[in-house]
Amino acid sequence: MGRQPKSDADKVHDRIAVLRADRGVSRKELADAVGVHPQTIGYVERGEYSPSLALALRIARFFGLPVEAVFSLDPLPSISQEILRRTS
């Protein structure tokens, strides 16, 4: 299991850093809660590692969100873009 996704098609995009900042959660706190090393959270946030399905589900559960609100195979719009789209 390597840290680098095989191709751009395999890249998993996420909102973990934004969600952590919003909730005041450190990488270590999130890592402890989902059972991984804090470095793993950093790798996932930077797109250097695609999480397993189980890890993605544990992270989504931690934030109380559906997995597709946290992870996507397509680039995720910024939160501000999402809000503007919904209010237009």
Rank of each mutant, 00 (worst) to 15 (best):
V44T: 06
E68Y: 14
M1C: 14
A21E: 09
V36A: 03
A69G: 10
Q39S: 09
R15A: 09
V44M: 12
R46V: 01
D14L: 05
G35Y: 01
D8Q: 15
A21H: 11
L57Y: 09
E48R: 10
P38V: 02
H13R: 14
P38S: 08
R23W: 03
R86F: 10
S78A: 15
H13L: 08
P5H: 14
F63Q: 04
R61F: 10
L53I: 06
D74I: 08
A31H: 02
Q4E: 13
G2A: 00
V70C: 05
V70K: 10
L53A: 11
R3D: 11
R86P: 04
A21N: 06
E82W: 02
L19R: 08
V67W: 02
A56I: 14
V67F: 08
A60Y: 05
S88A: 14
D14Q: 13
Q81V: 07
S50E: 13
A17N: 01
A9Y: 13
F63I: 08
G24M: 03
K6Q: 09
P38E: 10
A21S: 15
P75R: 13
R61T: 13
R86Q: 11
A69V: 06
R27E: 05
S7I: 03
S52M: 08
E82C: 07
A21G: 03
F63P: 00
E82S: 08
G35N: 00
S88R: 15
E82I: 04
Q81M: 09
S26Y: 02
I79T: 15
V25G: 12
P66H: 00
M1H: 12
P77E: 07
R15M: 04
D74P: 00
A31N: 02
S52W: 01
I16S: 04
Q39T: 03
I83L: 02
V36N: 09
A31Q: 07
S26A: 01
K6F: 06
E82A: 10
V70R: 05
L57I: 09
S26N: 10
F62V: 05
G47H: 06
P38N: 06
S72L: 11
D32Q: 04
Q39P: 02
S88V: 12
D32G: 05
A17D: 01
F71K: 08
A17C: 03
R61Y: 10
A56M: 14
G24T: 10
K6C: 04
H37K: 12
E45G: 00
S50D: 14
F62E: 05
R46Q: 15
P75S: 14
R15Q: 07
F71T: 02
S7W: 13
I79H: 14
A9G: 05
Y49M: 15
S72K: 11
R58I: 06
Q81A: 13
H37T: 00
E29H: 12
